[in-house]
């Protein structure tokens, strides 16, 4: 898995490439948590290049969701591939997360609301 971090205005954009699984989910949690704890709780996860997610990966995203919302932000997901979206649908997490087709749409949604 490869992670890439970018800032746009006060939004943190983290892209995930490859598989998010039990062996590496903590890397994503550590990276995004540090941003939230540094006062940047508006997180967008770019997942258009994420090929696979397991229950540990789901748990990591839920952890970030709770942490960011507790800090008056959010964790929004973007670009889910069909196989990945299916996992969110099976677990009903598609009803819990804000999911957008693209990163730009998620950032625009943040921009339209006050920090």
């Amino acid at each position: 898995m490869q992670l890439n971090l970018e800032h746009r205005e006060n939004v943190v954009i983290c892209t995930v490439e490859g598989d998010l699984d039990a062996s590496n989910y903590s890397e994503l949690v550590d990276l995004a948590s540090a941003e939230i704890e540094a006062g940047r709780p508006r997180v967008v996860l770019g997942l258009s290049k994420m090929d696979y997610i397991d229950s540990s990966g789901l748990g990591a995203l839920v952890k970030l969701l709770k942490k960011s919302r507790l800090a008056s932000g959010d964790t929004k997901l973007t670009g889910l591939k069909p196989e990945v979206r299916k996992v969110f649908e099976l677990t009903h997490l598609d009803k819990i997360f804000d999911i957008f087709p693209e990163v730009d749409a998620a950032v625009a949604h943040y921009m339209a609301t006050k920090p």
Binding site: D54, S55, H92
Partner: peptide, 20 residues
Amino acid sequence: LPDLSRANEGGYGIFLVRTL
């Protein structure tokens, strides 16, 4: 099995196995 009406940090593994 997990309560699917909530966001859970764990417990989805066996649920997924049984579902799939």
